[in-house]
Each structure stands twice: as structure tokens, then as C-alpha cells.
């Protein structure tokens, strides 16, 4: 098993091994390079914990985690992250928010001043790609929730990460905006080809976007099913109304209902 992201027999306990919360146990999963993976499961089953493990923000008590062929022993920096909360900095323009990772991550960090123009152009191109052309000089609070989330995706992608980690990024948006953002995400992935892990509680979102959906059990979380999504790309949004699509959604839904009942 040599994927781009590999977790083997991972266990994670919060707050002391004896009396802490066992969040994940015996979790094994593998995501291939360029693949779009989705992770679904009951609330509190350890999905966000999985994100933090794979990006090296926390270390497991047991098992191994490999990203891009290296064992993870600290923040991976090949990853870009986006959460449900867009967490844009209100004192920075959207453009400056998008460029923030370049001020942090090497090799961009040391070149940031000298090549500011090239980086600005890059950020503007990315904003255009997600439909925010001309909004670069607006402040986050001048943007709608959907627009902030688009900018958030840009910030996660500005340093060309090989791995994109999304934790319920569209969870707070209304249904229409959410579907718009699915298509933005689909197109970004098609264009840039990064490996993606998307955590979501929206099963339609998972099936629409992912090549493979991992279903987690209730806490302590582990992978109980790996479901391939065979639809060919590019996928039109109308796909979500087809019966083959809804069959997979229902299949996943039943699995999660069982997992919740078992808990």
C-alpha cells in the first residue's frame, strides 16, 4: 500500500491515554496521488482529528502516517487547509489574505518581497479562477459567505500544495451557494490535479466531488467502508438528480445510520 497519503492502524487519544477521549482507533486508509477522497461519518467520530493527523498538527499514539512518501513527524507544509470558518483576517484585503501562506511557507517566504509582483499576479489569477475577479482589494467583511469561502480556497491553494485538506468547507452555506462551490471545487481539482481529502457531513457533496468515499464508524473512529464513485469526469451538476447518483447516496446514508445505531 503506497498511496500519496497513507494512514496505518492509527490511534489517537485526547488528554491522557488512561482517562482521555479515544477519538480514533485502528484507522487505516490510503489515498492515491491526484485522487479526490471524501470522508463521511457520524458527528464526533474523529473526522477533524483525522485532518489534523494527516497534516502533522498532532501526532498519533499508535500507527504510522505517511504523506508524499515521508513519515509525518511535524507540520507537512505540502498541504493547504480550509475549514468551515473561512477565518479571513479582517485587516487584510482579500488579495493579501490569499497571499498570506506565501509569507510563511518556504521557498516563497524568502522570495516574497523580491517577487511580490509575480505572486500578486498569481493570486489574482487564482481569484479569477474561482469567480472573484476584481474582488482582490475588497475586505473580507465586504464579501458574502460564499465569496469568503472562495477566497479561503484560494488561500489554501496559493502555494501550489500537493495535498488539499478540506474540513466541512461548505457546511455553513445555503444550498445554492454550496452547489456553486462544488462546481468551483470540481474545476479547481480538474485544472490543478492536487490530491484532496474532503471531510463532510453532506453525502451528496461527497458523491458529487469524490473518486472514493471513506465511511467512518462512530467514535472511536475507524474506516468501515471504502466506496468507489465510478461517474466519469467532468461531472455536470445534473448528475446529482440521477438515480445512479442517489443510489450511492442512499447506500452511504444507510451505512452511517447503522454506524450511529451501533454506537
Amino acid at each position: 500500500m503506497t498511496g500519496f497519503v497513507d494512514l496505518r492502524d492509527v490511534r489517537l487519544t485526547y488528554g491522557g491515554a488512561a482517562d482521555g477521549t479515544l477519538a480514533l482507533d485502528g484507522l487505516t486508509m490510503s489515498v492515491q496521488k491526484g485522487e479526490f477522497a471524501a470522508v463521511v461519518g457520524p458527528s464526533g467520530c474523529g473526522k477533524s482529528t483525522l485532518m489534523k493527523l494527516a497534516t502533522g498538527l498532532i501526532a498519533p499514539q499508535n500507527g504510522t502516517i505517511e504523506v508524499a512518501g515521508h513519515e509525518v513527524d511535524g507540520p507537512v507544509s505540502v498541504a493547504g487547509m480550509a475549514f468551515q470558518n473561512p477565518s479571513m483576517l479582517p485587516w487584510r484585503s482579500s488579495l493579501a489574505n490569499v497571499m498570506l501562506p506565501l509569507e510563511i511557507v518556504q521557498p516563497h517566504r524568502s522570495k516574497f518581497r523580491s517577487e511580490k509582483q509575480a505572486y500578486t499576479a498569481k493570486a489574482e489569477a487564482l481569484l479569477e479562477l474561482v469567480g472573484l475577479k476584481g474582488f482582490g482589494d475588497k475586505y473580507p467583511w465586504q464579501l458574502s459567505g460564499g465569496m469568503q469561502q472562495r477566497a479561503n480556497l484560494c488561500r489554501a491553494l496559493i502555494h501550489d500544495p500537493a495535498l488539499l485538506m478540506l474540513d466541512e468547507p461548505f457546511g455553513a452555506l445555503d444550498a445554492f451557494t454550496r452547489e456553486e462551490l462544488w462546481q468551483v471545487m470540481r474545476d479547481l481539482h480538474a485544472e490543478k490535479g492536487f490530491t484532496t481529502i474532503l471531510v463532510t457531513h453532506d453525502l451528496r457533496e461527497a458523491v458529487f466531488l469524490a473518486d472514493k468515499v471513506f465511511v467512518m464508524s462512530a467514535r472511536p473512529g475507524t474506516i468501515i467502508r471504502e466506496r468507489e464513485v465510478p461517474f466519469e469526469r467532468p461531472r455536470p451538476i445534473e448528475l446529482t438528480y440521477e438515480s445512479a447518483f442517489n443510489d450511492i447516496v442512499h447506500e452511504l446514508r444507510d451505512l452511517i445510520a447503522d454506524a450511529r445505531a451501533a454506537a
Binding site: G56, S77, A79, M81, F83, S87, I104, A156
Partner: peptide
């Protein structure tokens, strides 16, 4: 500081 913001930056090696 929002924990999400801190996670985003720490994951970049900040």
C-alpha cells in the same frame, strides 16, 4: 486567535 487560523498557519510550518 481563531483555532482554525492557527491550524492553517501551523500546517504551513509557521
Amino acid at each position: 486567535i481563531e483555532p482554525e487560523m492557527e491550524d492553517v498557519l501551523r500546517a504551513l510550518g509557521a
